[in-house]
Design a protein around this nucleic acid. Structure first.
Length: 457
RNA sequence: GGCGCCUUGGCGGAGUGGCUACGCAGCGGCCUGCAAAGCCGUUUACACCGGUUCGACUCCGGUAGGCGCCUCCA
């Protein structure tokens, strides 16, 4: 069991996970008012793989990624499309499950919906009102920011500074411009609301995560994550709500992923709308999308574009080629050589060090090159098995177990005919057959041990 | 304007006070009947300006540029 360290946004420091604690991880999922884009997939992948890695190291881990299915944006988008907000949310939630499911990295342990957590949300708000941290005003309920001393500790913003940016709030029901809504009274035209002690309404944007996190993981829990764009105000407000209500820390470590950037790259129209996850999956496949998403350290911004995706695909192809030549052994079959085992160990070390996936992948590629250089070195025995183990940790196990179908009879007959032609040094005929095989989807690779067929990529 | 962060070779992207990241692409070579796969080599990469240091891409300061957020209905 390795000591795993994660960079904490609040303190800026690398914090160590307790080896005997249950690692509760809560990551903020999407607000389902539209199909998710590839940026939304980054936290899903990062936190899913982190949980997978922790388990493989022997940690107890529970991952919860919520779905925010009631929100201003949903009302607006539904109205724009002429459907009910419930309908839109249900449709987009289903699309979210489908799109993320296609990534092939499994599902979180729990995926709570805001609309199914209304009871706990109302209870939490009621507690805040009782404790004097929140107040009702015209059917809305607001959190009194100044009643919570630690406000700003995550995003490192002094409250004095925040006031200045505040625009005119003349018609507001808030007592203080800093305050934010916990509960919003039902307004005309809104088609979804719940009864509450303050009248019919719906939750504000931040409270649902406080309630769901506590319901799923208890409080405090270990890691709270999400995109860096949620640091303020969303996570700052979650802290305020949860800690004011419970008098206890919400989460010990705050872990934020960087944004996917399109930079100034101008994309062609046909590629431009590939921002949606489903379209990226259609165009490149899950393996490429996952490889792309782990190609940079999770905290850093990641450049998006055709180039990076194709590069991820090409890198995968190198790994896949290697695994074809060096297939992983079955369970319990053979012991890896020292050098191969050391590479696997360094791969895990990299992940244990703030989940450094690009550094981990370096170990994978270094191992591949070493074996290609010295295929018979006993120290590198079992490299295919080691590599497959590495890839499983980062959601790329399909590169090793891709379930490639073997060539059919027709292809095998052609291959045999080509072998015969080559034996006769009838190169023209051999090349002709190679073209035929290509049409069937097979690439011929001549090697010392004869020709073999590989699916064309 | 405020807070946080970033700026690495054609592209993506790690990392370290002094030693090749890695991947992709290009070019040259090896291997191959020719290819593919693979191997080797490759155009002196660390925004700019100062400073600290025997030595900085790697620490400090400044400049320029970029990114996220700055609130709950624009």
């Amino acid at each position: 069991m390795r000591e795993v360290r994660i960079r904490d946004t609040m303190s800026g420091e690398l914090l160590t996970l307790g080896t005997d604690e249950e690692i509760g991880i809560y990551a903020c999922g999407p607000t389902v008012y539209s199909r998710i884009h590839i940026g939304n997939a980054r936290p899903f992948v990062i936190f899913s793989l982190l949980a997978r890695f922790l388990r493989s190291e022997g940690y107890g881990a529970k991952l919860a990624i919520n779905v925010t299915d009631v929100n201003d944006k949903i009302y607006t988008a539904a109205a724009g499309r002429g459907v009910s907000s419930t309908e839109l949310a249900a449709e987009m939630t289903a699309a979210y499950f489908e799109d993320t499911g296609r990534l092939g990295i499994g599902r979180p342990d729990s995926e709570p919906l805001a609309t199914e957590t209304i009871g706990p949300i109302i209870d939490l708000i009621a507690t805040l009102v009782e404790e004097g941290h929140a107040y009702e005003s015209g059917g809305d309920v607001y959190f009194a920011v100044r009643s919570f001393d630690g406000y700003g500790k995550l995003s490192h913003r002094p409250t004095e500074e925040m006031e200045q940016g505040e625009g005119d709030d003349a018609g507001s029901l808030k007592r203080d411009p800093l305050d934010f809504a916990l509960w919003k009274a039902k307004k005309d035209g809104e088609d979804l609301s719940w009864e509450s002690p303050w009248g019919p309404g719906r939750p504000g944007w931040h409270i649902e995560c406080s309630a769901m996190a506590e319901a799923e993981l208890g409080q405090p829990f270990t890691i709270h994550g999400g995109g860096s764009d949620l640091v303020f105000p969303h996570h700052e407000n979650e802290i305020a709500q949860s800690e004011a209500a419970r008098g206890e820390q919400l989460a010990r470590i705050w872990m934020h992923n960087g944004m996917i950037e399109t930079g100034s790259e101008k994309m062609s129209k046909s590629v431009g709308n590939i921002f949606q996850l489903s379209e990226a999956l259609d165009a490149y496949g899950a393996e490429t999308v996952v490889a792309y998403l782990i190609s940079g350290h999770y905290r850093q911004p990641l450049a998006f574009g055709e180039g990076p995706l194709e590069q991820a695909a090409a890198g995968n192809e190198r790994l896949r080629n290697f695994l074809r030549e060096n297939p992983p052994a079955g369970a319990g079959e053979g012991v890896p050589g020292d050098e191969a085992a050391a590479a696997g160990s360094r791969f895990r070390d990299a992940l244990a060090d703030d989940f450094n996936t690009p550094r981990a992948m370096r170990e994978a590629f270094d191992l591949v090159r070493a074996v290609n250089q010295r295929p018979d070195d006993p120290a590198l025995a079992g490299a295919g098995t080691v590599l497959a183990g590495m890839l499983e940790l980062v959601g790329l196990e399909s590169l090793a177990t891709g379930g490639e179908e073997g060539p059919g009879d027709e292809a095998l007959e052609l291959l045999e005919a080509r072998n015969a032609a080559r034996a006769d040094k009838d190169w023209a005929r051999a090349d002709e057959i190679r073209d035929s095989l290509a049409e069937l989807g097979w690439e011929v690779r001549d090697g010392a041990e004869g020709a073999r067929l590989v699916p064309r990529s």
